[in-house]
Computed example of a mutant assay.
Amino acid sequence: MSGFHDVRFPLRLALGATGGPVRRTDVVNLSNGRESRNQRWRDSRRSYDAGSGVKSAADLYAVMEFFEARRGQLHGFRFRDPIDWKSCGPVDLPTAADQRIGTGDGGTAAFQLVKTYGDGHGSWIRRITKPVAGSVTVSIDGEAQPADAFVVDPATGILTFAPGQVPAIGADIRAGFEFDVPVRFDIDRIEVDLAHFNAGRIPSIPLTEILT
């Protein structure tokens, strides 16, 4: 049965991977020269090629070993996006004020970690389901909260406040964190050809984001 293994793809290989968000949009050219565009996917889906991070025979073996342990496409795993893996930009450090995750109502204790992408013309809210354990910080109305005031499920990204720490009505709840992307291999076969590899031909190792 398929599942998710809570293990991260080798970081040294992930840092050299290529890829990013993918969306699906239907574009129809109308007779008057205009276009009709329809969004097929509500959310984007990340897609990567980890082959570009492979630089040596040792790297190839590490990927093959990881691939076999996941049974090819069968089991998902964690992957660190080389550019987008924090609640802030790639050159900044996460802070407890980075992302607004909710507004208190005096009773709700659980909030989903999210990251908002946007500008003056639009925005998109992304659910963060694989935060890095120990990386999450929280603030309520700008005041940093102690670590024992909340717990975070690293398998779902749901943050739950401890009894007596539930945010008051109207409170602004924010969080900072690091996170991984849940992915799986998008192939059931890895082509290993050392002759081509030594000649500079990089193997393709596609990964695709999954829902967990």
Score class of each variant (00 low, 15 high):
161 F>K: 06
12 R>M: 05
68 E>W: 08
177 F>T: 14
13 L>H: 04
96 A>P: 02
76 G>M: 09
181 V>W: 06
177 F>C: 03
61 Y>Q: 10
146 P>E: 02
81 D>M: 04
120 G>W: 13
196 H>L: 06
174 R>F: 15
117 Y>H: 15
3 G>S: 08
48 Y>I: 00
158 I>T: 09
72 G>M: 10
16 G>E: 03
77 F>C: 03
203 P>E: 12
194 L>P: 08
176 G>L: 03
150 F>W: 04
202 I>G: 00
109 A>L: 05
101 I>T: 08
135 S>L: 11
76 G>F: 06
185 F>K: 09
93 L>Y: 07
42 R>M: 11
134 G>T: 11
1 M>K: 12
31 S>Y: 05
207 L>M: 10
171 A>I: 05
161 F>V: 12
170 G>C: 06
67 F>I: 04
202 I>Y: 01
160 T>M: 01
156 T>Y: 07
172 D>P: 00
159 L>Y: 08
32 N>W: 07
141 D>R: 05
165 Q>T: 14
91 V>I: 07
56 S>Q: 14
99 Q>H: 10
51 G>M: 11
95 T>K: 03
139 S>G: 05
87 S>K: 00
187 I>R: 12
140 I>F: 09
51 G>N: 11
202 I>S: 06
27 V>H: 03
63 V>S: 05
196 H>A: 08
95 T>W: 00
164 G>E: 10
64 M>T: 10
40 R>F: 14
55 K>A: 12
23 R>W: 02
203 P>A: 13
190 I>Q: 12
105 D>F: 04
212 T>Q: 14
66 F>V: 09
155 A>L: 15
47 S>R: 13
102 G>Q: 11
181 V>G: 00
35 E>S: 11
38 N>Y: 14
181 V>A: 00
196 H>V: 00
84 D>P: 00
50 A>W: 05
54 V>R: 01
135 S>V: 13
117 Y>V: 13
155 A>E: 14
112 Q>V: 06
184 R>M: 13
167 P>S: 10
59 D>I: 06
46 R>M: 04
78 R>Y: 00
59 D>H: 09
51 G>D: 12
65 E>G: 01
17 A>W: 01
165 Q>P: 04
153 D>C: 04
176 G>S: 08
12 R>G: 11
41 W>P: 01
143 E>R: 13
88 C>L: 09
48 Y>V: 00
157 G>Q: 05
43 D>W: 09
31 S>T: 03
86 K>C: 06
116 T>K: 14
79 F>D: 06
186 D>M: 01
173 I>H: 05
149 A>Y: 03
26 D>A: 05
188 D>S: 13
23 R>F: 01
35 E>Q: 12
95 T>D: 07
46 R>C: 03
197 F>S: 01
131 P>D: 09
122 G>P: 09
39 Q>T: 14
49 D>Y: 02
